[in-house]
Amino acid sequence: MSFDQFLQYISSGITSGSIYALTALGFTLIYNSTDIINFAQGEFVMLGGLVAISMHEWGAPLPLAFLVAVALVGIVGVIFEQLAIRPLLSAGVLAQIIVTIGASLAIRTVAMLIWGRESLPLPPFSGDSPIVILGASILPQTLWVLGLTLVIVVALQLFYRRTLTGKAVRACSVNPTAARLMGISYSRVVLLSFGLSAAISAAGGVMITPVSFMSYSAGALIGLKGFAACILGGLGNPVGAVAGGLILGILEALTVGFLPFSGSSGYKDGVAFLILLVILFARPQGLFGRRTVEKV
């Protein structure tokens, strides 16, 4: 394999990995404040893309379509929290997980009824003539996704460390009871997490649509991969989530490139889930995890 090719695989991996990273960030936000694994996360990504497509069809310029999609899906996240999560905040994780599974089924079906079954396109933000870096070509759109991911990670770090609300969120993730005793409104923190998480995933969805199109069923696979990325990076760690997403994308691309036999791409998705299992068995706190994992 030539160096050019190697770089091309890395570039492919970054393209897929950046959307895993954004989805993983969404998981992280919710997990951090509630310990819930939100199985509807991929549906937020899907909704973001589809809403933007409709806005653009109605003549909205791309930036406006982007903002509307992010805001709308953020609201969906808030409504979801109010309706389904709020009544179960003290009901145990199993019930909460099941509710998110139910929501994912419902959201997906409603999206199918609204937008139909076929994939829909969205034009790229800044043209689709590829940029060639050291012999590897990358789409401008991928740079947009990467840029957005970086901005969000930095913004989140600032938010968590510098703002009072952010500190409150962190306090809740460490010890909800103690946080509540200190006068932090736990329920408001949870609400905020769901809204933010849905908005971030939606932003990712809008960004990725020009590269890969969007359909009602696309959220499931993205959600699963984002989840695997989360575990890889360590549940609850935003930087780990992003790193996990990119590493996962690159590993998948390299699986295609390095496995010596023809047709190795069939095992590409297997890699993600194999890594997930290995990490769970060998290092359940993830590559970059800090949270302690309690043994029974």
């Binding site: 695989y9 570039s11 492919s12 990725i208 890969s212 691309a253 295609v256």
Partner: peptide
Amino acid sequence: KESYKTEDTDLTAQLTKIKA
């Protein structure tokens, strides 16, 4: 000969291998 999943977001990895 390479393959992909219907919902895959990017096929450049497969195509790079084919191109080679």
